[in-house]
Design a protein around this nucleic acid. Structure first.
Lengths: 211, 211
DNA sequence: AGCTCTATTATACGAGCGAATAATTTCCGT
DNA sequence: ACGGAAATTATTCGCTCGTATAATAGAGCT
């Protein structure tokens, strides 16, 4: 008698890869990177462990793909928000707010981000992915700022503009980090309000000028 | 014939605990939290693995002690720097600079910090240690700011003062984080200069007023 | 010098890990 | 309807993990 074997359906490569990556993120968010074992991930994705090595050369490569997915998820929405406004001022404002409100400000997102951060120092590939995203984010901010200053008729050197972008990025990152880590300390819109007011100050605008 | 056994010397409890914690940090800094196994740590400390459970109830407790050591190492120096100036303005300035210069701005420190961050969402004890340190840091900043404004004769409400402290902390954390993660992008004193200029802007001071 | 306490070593255990391989099922082209 | 490529499962391997336990060695005390 032949032993009963699990029935299954064949999925397209893109579907399976996405399923596996989402399962990876679920596992990491729930129990940290230590809990993201190939068995747990496969179980969560509804497949058996061996399949992972059919779609990825190893666990490491799958984790790298998962990190890319996390970073995309964090930058996607703010960048989209920054494309929607009519004036540069509105676009800048929307970009800032999107960076400090859900789903970017979200315990799960933070868990995922944090789980990978510690790999940057150890693994060169993760470091490259980070750098790529940081530079993209810096460039996006520089573009937003350049438009904004042009719209206002304020002359700002490229060097000064970059300096502004670095500071604004740092402020937003810091607010996002502490605001999400210690979310119970902040009221509903406190984070966004604080971000806008701080950005106005950093850019030497009058209070309320971005609102 | 009795098998040769390793010779050893007895150490005091405080010495051994410190050695073990330092060895733990070395392992984490070098190869991440995954590389910090009891065997690696014991080996680095020059003892055998079993000894760890003589001084700690388990690996987890030792990691918690190590996290406390990391956080102390990060806050110790800036707080000391903030006690040394004659005027409140100088103390604030020193505190800010200390937070964005070595040894706080240091790949090793960042590695250690990052390795533990991901535990905050999973393990309640780590979350408590973080919260404790964040609140202490916020309080320290509030005190510095209150002194600073009093010295200038500027009236600032407690609420406004706290809001300033949150923004300044976020900015400093963000600069520290990105500046250390992507350290090759920043010149020698660029980070500190940027921090000072940004803090001046956040507090609505005139440029150079903190220098 | 010998006794005793305990810090430290040594060894073993069971569990879980990532990876490799072989067996089986699905599904598409014909 | 059927044959064959390949997607998926099942099973195994060697390794390392954290912990537990027993044996041993160092050091203070009398």
């Amino acid at each position: 008698m032949t032993p009963a074997r699990r029935s299954y359906i064949r999925a397209s490569e893109s579907e399976r890869r996405e399923d596996l990556i989402l399962a990876t993120l679920d596992c990491i968010a729930e129990s940290g990177i230590q809990g993201a074992t190939v068995r747990q991930i496969a179980n969560r994705a509804g497949v058996t462990a061996g399949l992972i090595r059919h779609y990825f050369t190893g666990k490491d490569q799958m984790l790298q793909a998962a990190y890319r997915a996390v970073m995309n998820g964090m930058t996607e929405l703010p960048i989209a928000a920054a494309h929607e406004g009519e004036t540069a001022s509105v676009r800048l404002r929307r970009f800032i707010i999107a960076n400090v409100t859900p789903p970017v400000t979200n315990p799960r997102t933070l868990s995922l981000w944090a789980a990978f951060i510690s790999h940057l120092q150890t693994d060169q590939t993760f470091a490259a992915i980070h750098r790529e995203n940081y530079l993209a984010s810096l460039t996006a901010m520089e573009a937003l700022l350049a438009d904004f200053f042009e719209e206002r008729g304020t002359a700002v050197s490229e060097r000064q503009n970059r300096s502004f972008a670095i500071s604004l990025n740092a402020l937003i990152d810091g607010l996002w980090l502490e605001g999400t880590l210690t979310s119970d300390l902040f009221a509903e819109n406190e984070l966004a309000d604080s971000a806008l007011a701080s950005v106005e100050a950093l850019l030497r605008l009058k209070p309320g000028e971005l609102a």
